[in-house]
Design a protein around this nucleic acid. Structure first.
Lengths: 358, 358
DNA sequence: TTGAAAGCGCTAACAT
DNA sequence: ATGTTAGCGCTTTCAA
């Protein structure tokens, strides 16, 4: 990996253009306060030599890196099962690219890796971090806080508010979306609306359950069955449901994958969808929701948009800590900002997408 | 993103330990040639101050970055549809982490981005690159070659050999795997074995088709139907197949997703699997292959292993260009090395996994 | 074995 | 508006 041909330095550019290194630097960094003829000459020299600034040298003096870490905890879980993560990554990448920032990906597998990530973030290699997939007891937030790196979390963090409140996150309106879904089911005249939950140690799953409860305040507890965001979990849950409550006439599944599993069992058991049982999912994961039989009515969230927003929030916090106020400003219309103490975040709206299953 | 507390420098460590900066540096970098008592003192000082080396300063002098770029072209395509990409990424990440390298992710969306990637790679920000998802006419290889960055490609590149042969890639034995699958079908006594292809501008799809042809040299051409690696494509193809060749009794699908689509149509049309029609997929994408009805017999490839191998190949090329020879050595048992001119690569073996569909 | 000193390539005061 | 100069924090000769 040796550099075969030594790359040209600013010095070389300056020499060729017949100016000082300082002037050459100014031109390379935008050219403010340099007169046109010189700018032109430097530009030409840059072109001719194929000059590319040495980022290491630049960082050494500016103490900036134009790089952001994306930390994904426990990729074994959900991350690799559905395209969720990939879509967020795409949103992030687009935004970072637009601002000339690099994306440093940090995947962690269990506890040991957390220390490594902490060290890396503390090492001042990046200007900020985007952090995903935190569970309730995750030690990462603490490490990150100590590292002193500006951070935006993906999804509402689940830890206690004891951690003090200057935590910024971006999330979908899981609770509101769930409410919409369940209301739709009720509006269809369904009286026995069940819910297959996600893993409740993730806030997204917990929030969706809360949304269900908002509408079905006094539902039969047997109508709430645990799932795990996978099709297999959805199948299991649906079997349990059919067993305990054969009169169920609607199911709100915590995500599309779960709904897909439930649909399979319903068909297998000869229940017609939506005639006998109406089904709604969550996510609007296209490859899933459009492929099911029948196509899935579901709650859409703008996953790619979430990623982009996270990046924007982080970048705009430049030179400062990322604050909830800034978050609100950047998020713009459609997003709701949480009030009061505790973690503060930007919550993106969801929309119900009607297909054939409900 | 201001540095609130100035991080301790090597200077500070040296001072606290009562040694010169040079000695402190030696200890931090392994401690060779420094006597034990001093090593100990420096270590303690590092600990006490929470010293972390400034990577920018280090890179400036060493001209190394301990960072590798992962370039993924056209994420809109396959990349986000199945967990393939995520698994490779995981394999890469593990390997890089084990060697204290960082992973810089470069996602591209179309032509404009290629220039950006080229510039980045040419900028000497990373020690090497891992490149994925190249299509036949991709301009990226040229840019990369010019950038002079050591590179390993994921999957056999499809461009002409005119580009000269010192290209290293890692791939699965797509052709051999396909042969195994089709032979298995034939061994089951099936005489009308069809193939639903992938997008043939990707070498993986082309190679699988070649493997099919190796066994079914004089098959009815109508038994070969184009697909696109998606379930929808698989459905379409299966319908066409049933239309044109109602007597088909086996299908080798180019990947599991395609097979899943085909299975759906078969069930819908009342054909029993595997009794009437046997089906084999490719990939052994667990969440897909185990969830289908019936569970899918398929060709397994070690996706995560491919990623890891790519990273190992690149890292071991350290200080030198990555060569096919090195590739062979690193790959070890089970891998076949391509001989002769043209792109040279390491080909990982596949295995047939029998489930219920064939 | 250890230390002194010379840069790596760049930006940012400060002078002019 | 442009040039001069002093580092940024580190590794690496070279001397001792």
């Amino acid at each position: 990996m040796t550099e075969t041909v030594p790359r040209p330095t600013l010095e070389a550019v300056a020499a060729l253009a017949g100016v000082s290194r300082a002037t050459a630097s100014r031109v390379v960094n935008g050219g403010d306060g340099v007169r046109e003829p010189l700018v032109e000459r430097v530009r030409r020299a840059v072109e001719e030599l194929g000059y590319v600034p040495n980022q290491a040298a630049r960082s050494l003096v500016t103490r900036r890196h134009d790089a952001v870490a994306v930390v994904v905890a426990e990729p074994e879980t959900r991350v690799f099962a559905d395209p969720f993560f990939a879509l967020q990554l795409r949103g992030i990448s687009k935004e970072l690219t637009a601002h000339d920032n690099q994306l440093v990906l940090l995947l962690t597998e269990g506890r040991d890796d957390h220390a490594r990530v902490g060290r890396y973030l503390a090492g001042g290699h990046v200007d900020g971090a985007l952090v995903f997939s935190l569970h309730l007891d995750d030690p990462l937030p603490g490490l990150i806080r100590r590292a002193g790196v500006p951070t935006v979390f993906g999804g509402r963090p689940g830890w206690n508010d004891g951690e003090r409140g200057d935590v910024v996150y971006v999330d979908s309106d899981n609770r509101g979306g769930a409410r919409d879904a369940v209301r739709h089911l009720v509006g269809l005249g369904r009286g026995r609306v069940a819910h297959i939950t996600g893993p409740l140690d993730q806030t997204s799953a917990a929030d969706r359950l809360d949304g269900y409860r908002d509408v079905m305040a006094d539902a039969d507890p047997r109508l709430i069955v645990p799932g795990d965001f996978t099709p297999a979990g959805g199948e299991r849950a649906m079997r349990t449901l059919l067993d305990h409550c054969p009169d169920v006439d609607a199911v709100f599944a915590a995500n599309d994958l779960t709904a897909a599993g439930a649909l399979r069992v319903l068909r297998e058991q000869g229940r017609r969808v939506p005639d006998d049982v109406a089904v709604i999912g969550f996510d609007d994961m296209l490859p899933v929701a459009e492929q099911t039989d029948p196509p899935l009515t579901t709650v859409r969230q703008d996953i790619e948009g979430m990623g982009g927003l996270m990046a924007r929030l982080l970048l705009r916090g430049h030179g400062d800590r990322v604050t909830a106020q800034a978050a609100g400003e950047v998020a713009g219309a459609g997003a709701a900002e949480e009030a009061g103490g505790g973690p503060s975040g930007v919550v993106l709206p969801t929309t119900l997408v009607r297909r054939a299953s409900a």
